[in-house]
């Protein structure tokens, strides 16, 4: 009897510890974008449909991320869903507090402007809150369990983690003017060289992960071609798609010629690819 009352209280206590950790993660990961002026401006000129889509896509992504790697060890989809909305709430609070402290939002602005600025940042903050587990590791027990879950990740699970990694890392530079500027500076040869370099980098990561034994069902075939086709090429394709989606969401490549669009996508796919490749290490 006595022991029944106790766990309840300690569950709450543990939750608040995890919540604090989530706040830490949200700040750690979202401050670069909270301090990026293009992000503030996006808040008031971003297309409403695209922001809505982006927010709605965040929910299943966070649920999936929570399964592999949330700020709490979860035991059901219900738990993952709850954690997702907790992460969103944390992201929201962090965005509102920091943007107010920086003077980016104030009460003289219209509600529309404030809401726009906060909502776009909330997405990044909620990812940060969810990432808290892997970066600010607390309980040994827990990290072991989620680590084993990651180790058991199926091929599609790995691809999912790669997509999240790509999304997260590319998001932190995608809104900046520099993405477009870099693509203007690059010739077609530069573009080709960047593609080759990115593939090489991804392959090095994939190879390293393969020998670390990230996947439970290790394929006996670790030949160059096998790893290259299963992870490097697929990972790069994911990085390109995510980059294109992010650029489209932020409206950076609207009304561009197809060739220019592609070039900018390749530029952003560089950080996206690093994120995708490293996600199998970090996440």
């Amino acid at each position: 009897m006595n022991s029944e009352a106790k766990p309840k209280r300690s569950d709450t206590k543990i939750f608040f510890i995890h919540l604090a950790r989530a706040f830490g993660g949200a700040m750690l990961f979202s401050f670069p974008l909270l301090m990026t002026m293009e992000m503030w401006f996006l808040g008031f000129y971003m297309n409403g449909w695209r922001l809505t889509l982006f927010t709605l896509l965040t929910v299943p992504l966070l649920i999936g991320l929570s399964y592999y790697d949330g700020f709490e060890t979860t035991s059901s989809v219900w738990d993952d869903t709850i954690d997702t909305f907790v992460a969103y709430a944390v992201g929201f609070v962090v965005s509102i507090v920091l943007l107010s402290l920086f003077g980016v939002i104030n009460l003289q602005m219209t509600i529309g402007e404030i809401v726009g600025k906060v909502l776009i940042q909330t997405i990044i903050g909620s990812f940060g809150a969810m990432f808290a587990q892997s970066l600010l590791v607390g309980d040994q027990e827990e990290s072991k369990e989620s680590a084993s879950r990651k180790r058991q990740a199926s091929y599609f699970g790995e691809l999912f983690l790669m997509a999240v990694g790509a999304l997260f890392l590319s998001m932190s530079v995608a809104p900046t003017e520099e993405m477009i500027l870099i693509s203007y500076r690059m010739s077609d040869w530069h573009t080709l060289a960047l593609i080759a370099f990115t593939l090489l980098l991804m392959h090095a990561f994939a190879y390293a992960v393969e020998f670390r034994g990230h996947e439970k069902t290790k394929s006996p075939d670790k030949s160059f071609l096998n790893v290259f086709l299963r992870f490097t090429v697929v990972g790069y394709a994911i990085a390109l798609l995510i980059s294109f989606y992010i650029l489209w969401t932020f409206g950076s490549i609207d009304d561009m010629a197809l060739a220019e669009m592609l070039k900018t996508t390749v530029v952003l796919a560089f950080p996206a690819a690093i994120g995708a490749a490293a996600s199998r290490f970090i996440l």
Binding site: I82, A87, A89
Partner: peptide
């Protein structure tokens, strides 16, 4: 069992 406050914050989210 999901703690009460977790549910509250999740509901807010």
């Amino acid at each position: 069992k999901t703690p009460f406050w977790e549910l509250v914050i999740a509901a807010a989210g």
